[in-house]
């Protein structure tokens, strides 16, 4: 088990350089202080009540040394940290732009060709990408440990971040800025594809191949896990931000205005597309609309999956 995540972007090894440099300097100081503390505490332990001690109030040379040397080292660390930071904040001109929208509690990515994905960011190996990011509601933070990048998102202002993924694979994306009840479920994946695979993904071939073999309910289960439903809706009957999916379809729900309805396919569909219309009593009206995010097929699959939970 390593103390740092794997290195999967061009920036990661640079940041690790800074982390290692500070670690080594810190360890040296830590060992010096610890050694003196323990050595003194043992060597000069009181053995009798009237031991004589010298009257030493200071030593200018010593004090100058331990002021000047740490000061110089701290300035070196500052400069090193700044130099790498400057790289992290200077995207290359040729970087591909991807729009990122964060909302409670999901990530939405929009690519230059109009393609949209939810909680899954597709990027190509060795091609620099620049995220242009905003939030639809509260603060969020885009954090991929394997890339060593992090940047907050907010409403009313765009923030940016860039990296060049260097390894093919799937990497964890976290929301690092506390954003409410579903914070720890606001997870995503960064999927780094080889240039060939990325080409196929762009043309939409990959997707078709992958889903063709799945039943609607199986596909619905994937959507539940990957589209952010799981942040607010449980499968086991427990109450999260929203009502549980268990027994939802066919069951009775009391709405905010007191009306009792039987939740059917149409109610679920309406609630996904226009969530603020008929909210269930006792739950805050915070769900974002999935219009344009989930297709009709996706919604049907999700409904099929929800029926298996009864």
């Amino acid at each position: 088990m390593s103390w740092l995540p794997e290195v999967a972007s061009n920036l990661a090894s640079k940041v690790d350089g800074v982390l290692w440099f500070i670690t080594i300097i810190s360890l040296i100081f830590f060992i010096i202080i610890s050694t003196f503390l323990i050595y003194f505490a043992i060597k000069y332990r009181r053995r009798g009540d009237d031991e004589e001690t010298p009257y030493i109030t200071g030593n200018l040379t010593l004090e100058l040394i331990w002021t000047v040397i740490p000061s110089i080292l701290l300035m070196v660390i500052f400069v090193y940290g700044f130099v790498v930071f400057k790289d992290m904040r200077t995207p290359p001109k040729e970087a591909t732009e991807i729009n990122v929208v964060a909302k409670q509690w999901l990530w939405q990515f929009e690519y230059y060709n109009g393609k949209k994905t939810l909680n899954e960011l597709y990027v190509q190996q060795n091609r620099p990408v620049k995220m242009v990011m905003r939030s639809d509601d509260v603060l969020h933070s885009f954090f991929v440990p394997a890339f060593r990048v992090k940047q907050d998102l907010m409403g009313g202002r765009y923030t940016q971040l860039w990296f060049t993924p260097t390894k093919v694979g799937t990497f964890q994306l976290f929301c690092a800025e506390y954003c409410g009840t579903g914070h720890s479920k606001m997870l995503g994946k960064v999927i780094v594809l080889s240039p060939e695979a990325y080409d196929r993904w762009e043309k939409g071939e990959e997707e078709e191949e992958g889903v063709a073999s799945l039943s609607p309910a199986e596909r619905g289960e994937q959507i539940y896990a990957n589209s952010g439903c799981n942040a607010c809706h449980s499968l086991d009957g427990s109450k999260l931000v929203g009502p549980t999916f268990k027994g939802l379809i066919g069951g009775e729900s009391e709405l905010e205005d007191g009306e009792i309805i039987t939740a059917d396919e149409n109610y679920v569909r309406e609630s996904i597309l226009e969530p603020q219309g008929k909210t269930v009593k006792g739950y805050p009206p915070v769900m974002p609309s999935f219009k344009g995010i989930l297709s009709d097929n996706d919604i049907s699959a999700l409904i099929a999956y929800m029926k298996t939970l009864n």
């Binding site: 982390l19 500070i22 300097i25 090193y80 940290g81 990048v149």
Partner: peptide
């Protein structure tokens, strides 16, 4: 705290 004061390290 020195780690967190250094810009590049703090980002991570």
């Amino acid at each position: 705290g020195v780690f967190l004061g250094a810009l590049a390290a703090d980002v991570h």
